[in-house]
Design a protein around this nucleic acid. Structure first.
Lengths: 336, 336
DNA sequence: CAAAAGGATTGAAACAATTCAATCCTACGG
DNA sequence: CCGTAGGATTGAATTGTTTCAATCCTTTTG
């Protein structure tokens, strides 16, 4: 494969001039430039990114490590990040930890070897040990969908307490007095915050914590939702509304209620979380708490770029908290 | 950041020995090795992938360029490819062309600069010009979900004609005599093949092409499906079954039928295509033609690795055609 | 005891770019 | 006609690794 030297020889100039044609075309006389460009075209020359990287000390790629690419919520985050990176002329390497701290550690190691210019991460490791170890490499990182535990990094998150309040407040206002909460892994901040918000909304209406019936679940996918739906059907008395910790769970619940002949929203109202495309696309369109996922991905990438481009230590870490928004659709309505 | 030279100095050995400790530990005396490892740990040394790449001539990353990361079908392909790559110690860079030939060209340029070890691609460029230009770089590539147009590359695809036959054959067998076909962009092979298969199934049952009522659509997402559903409702006489070119369309159709009070499957049966997770998760679980997406991703990656690892020109391009499978669920049943 | 064998280690070349001080030209002013 | 300003061009140094022929050292063999 042709290198810059071959181009230089063919065009009858030095390698420095070829480099200038590529990186600072205006600094080269037009006819020299033309000669070099012709040689490049002729030889099918493509500059080697690894050689540039080696010299520059870091790559022009940003890494994004998410919990579950099967969840459209994370796909949206990736979309936002990719757009911001693209605007800055960078590529994004999207990886999937599948909520496994070991996979996460593997990937972080890979990123360090690649001398990635920065990492966007939704941590899978509750203890934070992986990130602590990673910080040694002095590669900037930004937490996504998580509040910063320390002041070592920027973070972009969504106010989950408020989200829980919006969801359950809406149900209470519609007249529901007993709400089921289909939760998820207890060590996730999100799950706890949403519960807290839900309880706050109940308290606001003069209802105690007993009005929130928790249906625990250890995963956050549709199958777990189906399972939770079955358990909901067995409850006596049965709550008239369900708040699900995410839309995948809500879709599962909806499916098992429908299969059992329980009407939504007449018999049971459902509110989900995330507002993924498939929530609006369900047979009974789901009311959901919309998270600005694309915006979150974009802002995280922008914060990362700011930190990465910072030469003179002027960067101050910031935590951005975005606001969720309730999107009311057919799945929620007043109880019988 | 510490380099191999710093480690060598600290451990009192040469750089070659450090390299050996990392790449061929058994070729170094245990106590030398221990000394070097201690120095590595001490300095927090991480080898530079770009320097290795520069020497090796190509990177340890494989690129995957898909049409739409919003479609879980492609997410499954990515999963399969990632697994195979991981087994071979490689990373995968997943990118999204969004069906735009320009974005595709941009990404292919990026891949060439990165000296990626190979590319898995679902082409967005019907003419094939992008790939033709890319072939110059002598980087191997494998077509995914597409039959090879020439003998220049390997390909993995699914027999779409058979898939169409399975879907419509099932409907005909259940007694349907008029089937709507919600299609997609006419320049996609998949769409045409599935139609052909559908017609074959009708012919098999002694029905002419007029038994297949086409409802065209220019996109393949849920919104387009909703739209198609509305058009279906206006047809007189209304077909008793719908075959959709993919599951996103089917979900959209299901939603608009449900909203109009048309019962599925009693009034109208629906069969989708791809068998994404959300098809099984719909309120009325969708009958669908399952594509072995994960397997396809894995096989494509394996073919690519075989070609990339081939030193002595022993590689012969192959086209693998996988078989789809009908998954019958609640959404399809006999007509009234 | 000398020579050969063979394992461990070394050190320099190569990879392909970028950068920058030095050099080369040209044109202009004195 | 000489000196110089300043833009264009050059070429060597640099980046961090891998590789491999050469060297060093120890052990075995004749």
């Amino acid at each position: 494969m042709a290198g810059i030297k071959d181009v230089a020889r063919q065009a009858g100039v030095s390698v420095g001039t070829v480099s200038n044609v590529i990186n600072r075309p205006e600094a080269v006389l037009p006819d020299t430039r033309a000669r070099v460009l012709a040689a490049i075209e002729d030889l099918g020359y493509v500059r080697s990114e690894s050689a540039r990287q080696l010299r520059a000390g870091r790559s022009r790629i940003m890494a994004l490590l998410v919990l579950d690419m099967g969840n459209p919520f994370f796909v949206d985050i990736a979309r936002g990040a990719e757009r911001a990176a693209r605007d800055a002329g960078l590529g994004v390497m999207v990886c999937n930890s599948g909520q496994s701290p070991e996979e996460e550690a593997d990937y972080l190691g890979l990123f360090a070897e690649q001398r990635v210019c920065g990492v966007l991460i939704t941590p899978a490791d509750a203890g934070g040990g992986n990130l602590e170890a990673f910080a040694r490499h002095r590669i900037p990182y930004v937490l996504v969908d998580r509040v910063a535990a320390s002041t070592d990094s920027c973070a972009v998150s969504v106010d989950d307490v408020r989200g829980g309040t919006l969801a359950v407040g809406h149900l209470v206002q519609a007249g529901h007095r007993s709400v089921a909460y289909v939760s998820g892994p207890g060590d996730l901040h999100q799950i706890r915050d949403r519960r807290e918000g839900a309880l706050a909304a109940l308290a606001e209406a003069g209802l105690g914590p007993e009005a929130l019936v928790e249906i625990p679940s250890d995963r956050l996918d549709v199958a777990a939702g189906r399972d939770a739906g079955a358990r909901l059907l067995g409850l006596v008395p049965r709550p008239t509304a369900v708040f699900c910790a995410n839309d995948l769970l809500a879709l599962g619940v909806l499916q098992s209620l429908y299969a059992a002949g329980v009407r939504v929203p007449q018999d049971v109202a459902i509110v989900g979380y995330d507002d993924i495309e498939f929530a609006a696309a369900a047979a009974v369109p789901l009311t959901s708490v919309r998270q600005p996922a694309v915006v979150m991905g974009r802002m995280a990438a922008e914060l990362l770029l700011e930190e990465a481009d910072d030469e003179n230590g002027g960067h101050r870490h910031r935590s951005v908290v975005l606001q969720p928004e309730l999107v009311v659709r057919a799945s929620s309505a007043a109880p019988r």
